[in-house]
């Protein structure tokens, strides 16, 4: 298993477990996370990443990235699957999603989540480029 694929597994596990301390361990001071359905959707460093995940977990009763397949080399991993979530109000959704992990040595350089966030947040506050 490559560094990037280990990071992918670690992030998905932390997401499902809603484990903020695990999220904090995965990210580093220079890590970038791009998540289209939160605001701001570009998070840099542990503080922003943990804060955003805390808010995300507070709004969702459940969240899970169901990994169907993936590929990785030492620096990158791309996972494909479905993002399943349940809002606090009970609204349950599932949509196609993908995750890209970019590792820099043993650190997470970037994690980008891909999904159609239109039903989560109808109007864009700029695309992630």
């Amino acid at each position: 298993m490559t560094t990037a694929s280990r990071m992918l597994q670690a992030y998905l596990s932390a997401l499902t477990a809603r484990d903020l301390s695990a999220i904090e361990k995965i990210s580093a001071s220079g890590s970038l996370m791009e998540i289209p359905f939160i605001k701001p959707n570009r998070l840099v460093g542990n503080n922003e990443i943990v804060k955003a995940h805390r808010e995300m977990f507070a709004n969702l009763a459940e969240i899970d990235f169901e990994l169907l397949d993936s590929s990785a080399d030492n620096n990158h991993a791309i996972g494909h699957g479905r993002l399943n979530y349940v809002r606090n109000g009970g609204d349950r959704n599932s949509l196609p999603a993908a995750i890209v992990i970019q590792a820099a040595g043993d650190s997470l350089a970037r994690m980008t989540l891909y999904c159609d966030a239109r039903n989560l947040r109808p109007w864009s506050d700029k695309s992630i480029m």
């Binding site: 159609d116 109007w123 864009s124």
Partner: peptide, 8 residues
């Protein structure tokens, strides 16, 4: 797979 909001 992508966010369609930039399309709209």
């Amino acid at each position: 797979i992508f966010d369609t909001r930039p399309l709209h």
